[in-house]
Write a protein that binds this DNA or RNA. Structure first.
Lengths: 276, 276
DNA sequence: TTGCTCCTCACGTCACGTGAGGTGGC
DNA sequence: TTGCTCCTCACGTCACGTGAGGTGGC
């Protein structure tokens, strides 16, 4: 018979741990002195403790281990539990690798810039989004700016405030030319099936698909600032082992009160991505 | 201005989380109605929330993130924190891979045997161990048994109980022959520098080195049982990506009262291992 | 008026670690 | 008698989740 300290030393666990296992009934000492409360363990209890430690190491929780050791669980059930645990473990590894890439890209960023970037990329999942929008191709960013301003203004007056959400711009690359393919419109708080023509622009309803993983960034301010933010998100996507998986979206979060003054607007850039 | 629910939806967090960040002062709502307690958030607070989420994702704790965002921390210090976090993340990945191998070897074991083995392998680290022992080579297991019984009995009577720990057998493979090289003796509770000869056997002091990682198993009972336990530990070592890194040890945990009746003894087998 | 949203407690999570304050055993 | 070990509370951990019980806003 060993006192708790000796037994703990043999098994390489803390005395607190043994007292805890006693308390929850997982490993009762062979004998407890009713006078002093001293716990006495037999060396024959070591296999049970080892079984507990081995199962704990597989990721099982203590309240699952008890029934398992007392044979209240078939090997078929144990197999099922282990398959779940395997999935958990695989997921944990993938999450850990992801986190490691995030950390390393941050370190590299500090080493490059000597400072902390003002931008923080966050991944989210996005639901399907109904919009009412007009689609055009433009030659360059200047033309794009003019078009966005015009479409934003036209939509702003033509759409009822109760239906109108945020200004949104979807940018597709046109593979056949070097022109930009832009879809400009407003998110809808209530779906509409109606096409609308105003100030020479035709707004059609469209349902943007859900995005499983979107890398997003919030930028604020002027257009020259914009491509810095795009650069930051692009670098992030590459450094973190993702690939772009669809057209990017820009959501103008703050209602733009003085059109076309986008200078103070807060814009969320969303890139659908998938693990490369 | 958004109420907490809307803001939570935009940022893909729970309202509880936003209330918690308010409570700990990490992200205070732009305005709180003193009458109702309603929290109102400005969309301009989204970048800060995103920064919080991004840093949390790197494994930083919330109380580290606050000072970081309020510029109370230099980029040099942040770099240091990230280097620590990188080490944590790498360690977590290795631990996770280790756990995955453990789980998979358990599943494979169930699939082979249809049941749960009575043996549980546990890894520990072992401190250096002073012993007093006699060393011989033997031809086969039968001769080994006879020698262990004789040496155990000789040591039992020759060593003072206050100094004598457990019976220990260290087995080395002799590469030049197929004979077994056995060191048989007792662990010492107090070091001794004395060599002792009794019943034709010479016991010399020796200090067994510490073992960083030992794969251990506790077996109970007869010698025929023994090689089942050896088989179990061998399979485990291979399945979990380890390699044997030294001679194995057997510690007879239960004082063997009736020599040479080892039948009821509890024995811990220890194999030093290293990641393969 | 009816839902819907918001509020503030306050307990629960998981497996112990870490004292505080006191006692048994050699 | 002096250390050493043991005992029982009881709080702390980390970032919220989950009700309970009650109220504001359209």
């Amino acid at each position: 018979m060993f006192r708790i300290g000796e037994f703990a030393q043999i098994a390489q666990v803390s005395t607190r741990q043994l007292r805890f296992y006693d308390q929850i009934g997982l490993l009762r000492p062979c004998h407890t002195d009713p006078q002093t409360g001293y716990r006495y363990y037999a060396i024959r209890q070591l296999p049970r403790l080892n079984a507990i430690l081995a199962l704990k190491d597989l990721g099982l929780m203590l309240d699952q281990i008890g029934p398992l050791l007392d044979d209240a669980i078939s090997s078929e059930e144990l197999r099922g539990m282990l398959l779940l645990k395997r999935a958990d473990a695989e997921h944990a590894i993938r999450t850990g690798e992801q986190r490691l890439r995030h950390i390393e890209s941050r370190i590299a960023q500090i080493d490059r810039q000597g400072a902390i970037s003002g931008y923080d990329v966050v991944t989210k999942s996005l639901p399907p989004q109904p919009i009412l929008a007009t689609r055009h191709t433009v030659a360059d960013l200047e033309e794009a700016g003019t078009l966005v301003a015009a479409a934003a203004a036209a939509g702003w007056v033509a759409l009822r405030p109760a239906h109108r959400g945020n200004l949104i711009v979807v940018a597709r690359n046109d593979p056949d030319s070097d022109r930009l393919d832009l879809t400009i419109g407003y998110t809808l708080t209530r779906s509409t099936g109606r096409t609308l023509t105003t100030q020479g622009l035709t707004f059609s309803p469209e349902n943007l698909p859900a995005i499983d993983i979107a890398a997003t960034i919030v930028r604020q301010g002027t257009n020259p600032e914009s491509h810095v933010a795009f650069g930051a998100i692009g670098t992030w996507i590459e450094a973190n082992g993702y690939a772009v998986a669809g057209p990017s979206r820009e959501i103008f979060l703050e209602p733009v009160l003085e059109l076309p003054g986008f200078d103070k607007a807060l814009v969320e850039i969303q890139f659908p991505v998938s693990p490369a």
